[in-house]
Structures are given as structure tokens and as C-alpha cells.
Simulated scan of single mutants.
Amino acid sequence: MNKRGHVLNAVLLSIGLGYVLDPSGDVSTFATIAEVFLPVVLGALFPDVDTAFGRHRKTLHNLPVLLVFVAHPIYHGGNLQWVWLGVLTHYVLDMFGSRRGIALFYPFWDEEFGFPSGVTTSSEYAEVVTVVITALELAGVAVLVYVLPQYLPPGITRLLAENTALIA
């Protein structure tokens, strides 16, 4: 996926995430959107920093990098707890939306993994694929929040408990 697709994904994901986490539709929903917006967008753009150094879709497009972003909020909390989601959605978009895929196990293994569902980054269907994948990502988040909340990280569970009555 190209930069425009990653930005579109992050913006739509932030708006949708705001409504999933706080479905009231009032000012608190917009506050939730504002809270998640910048970290998700930064996370969604971060993996492509490897175009300036290293090997693109390898150096910053792998599970060890994602684990660093997932572990950070466990130890430090704060608003950066949403950066991992942006990084994860970047990976999902590159794996499912692009023909090339990513090197999930780099630096241990150079092979790139992807799915045949993707399109080239210059395809006229790239934005449609991005929107479809974003909708599926939001559906996955909604299932976690409403059906399987016990599998959410503790920080997100606390946020939900503070903002909604979804988590007992």
C-alpha cells in the first residue's frame, strides 16, 4: 500500500475506533477520536520510515518491531498505547492490500509474506481495498471490545471501564 492508503486507513480507523470505544456519539466520542487519532496515524506511518534507511518492508515491517510497540504501553502507559494499533494496521494493509507482502520474521528470515488479495500500490482499486480492509479491522476491534474483552490489554480495558459500561 502507498502512503496515501496508510493515511486513509489510519484516519478511518481512528474515527471508527472512537465510535467503537465510545459509541454515545456525543462530545466524549469526539474526545476519544482525538485521543487515538495522532498515535494511530503516527503508528500507521512509522513502518515506512525504513524507505529512508535499511530495507523497505523488512527493517521496520516485522514482528520484533511490532512487539516493541505492543510492549511499550505495558510499561509506560499513556497516549502511546495506540501507536501499536497503527503499526499493526500498517502491517495488515501491506499483507492483505498489497501484492508484495512484508518480511514478518526479518532479520531472522528474509521471505516476504502476503496474500493474493492485494493490488499494486498504483492500482485504481488501492483505495477501495484500503477501505474494505479498514472496515474488516474495525469489525475485528468491535468483536474484541464487545464479545471478547478478556483478551484486550489491561490499559484498554481500563479505558473502556472509565468511558463506558461495556466491561464489568
Rank of each mutant, 00 (worst) to 15 (best):
M95N: 01
V7N: 06
I156H: 08
Y125T: 04
F30G: 07
L148N: 03
T51F: 14
G77A: 14
L42K: 05
V41G: 05
V49E: 07
S24R: 11
F46H: 05
A31V: 13
P107H: 12
Y75N: 02
W109T: 00
E112N: 06
Y106Q: 06
M1G: 10
G54W: 15
Y146Q: 02
V132D: 01
P64A: 13
M95L: 08
Y106R: 03
G16F: 12
V128Q: 03
N79F: 11
V147N: 09
T130Y: 06
N79Y: 13
H6V: 08
D48E: 11
G118D: 02
T130R: 03
A52M: 14
V119W: 06
H90A: 04
S117P: 02
K3G: 07
E162H: 11
A165S: 13
I33V: 15
L144H: 04
W109C: 12
V129L: 07
F96I: 08
H90C: 04
R100D: 12
H76Y: 15
F46S: 09
T164W: 08
A52K: 14
S24T: 09
L38F: 15
F113D: 00
Y75L: 15
G86C: 06
V27W: 15
T120Y: 13
F113M: 02
V41T: 04
L8G: 04
A135W: 12
L93R: 01
D48Y: 09
I167V: 15
W109A: 06
S24E: 09
E124Q: 09
V141L: 04
L12R: 09
S123V: 09
V131F: 05
N2C: 10
F108D: 02
P154F: 10
V41R: 01
L42W: 11
K58C: 12
G118S: 05
Y106P: 02
G5A: 12
P153G: 09
T89A: 09
V41F: 08
L93G: 10
G140M: 00
I15T: 09
N2Q: 10
Q81T: 08
E127K: 10
F115G: 00
V145H: 00
T164Y: 05
L136F: 15
T89G: 04
A168K: 14
L93F: 04
V83L: 09
L88P: 07
V11R: 08
I33T: 08
Y19H: 12
I167D: 03
S117E: 05
S14E: 10
V20E: 02
G18T: 03
E127L: 15
A103L: 07
G16C: 02
G18Y: 06
E124T: 07
F30P: 01
G155I: 00
G140P: 02
N79W: 15
T32W: 10
Y146G: 01
V65K: 08
E35M: 10
